[in-house]
Amino acid sequence: MKNVSDDVVARAYTSAMTKQGWRVVKTSGGYGVLKSTAGTKATKSTVVRPTAVTGKKGQGATKIDR
């Protein structure tokens, strides 16, 4: 269980991370993932997305529901 000073330390680190433009989020896998808070979004040029996923996912689901 954390005490007050631990929380202060944790907040200080979180603040420092935000200033640096990123923060580390704990995943449900137990490890962390570093997320950028600077507003820049990098995308992978290597990814080839299937058209079935990018274009018509919602439409297909609606048809099944009917």
């Binding site: 989020v25 896998g29 993932v33």
Partner: peptide, 10 residues
């Protein structure tokens, strides 16, 4: 190795 429901570390 994870689910989609990521949460912020406390």
């Amino acid at each position: 190795g994870q689910d989609d429901d990521v949460r912020v570390a406390e």
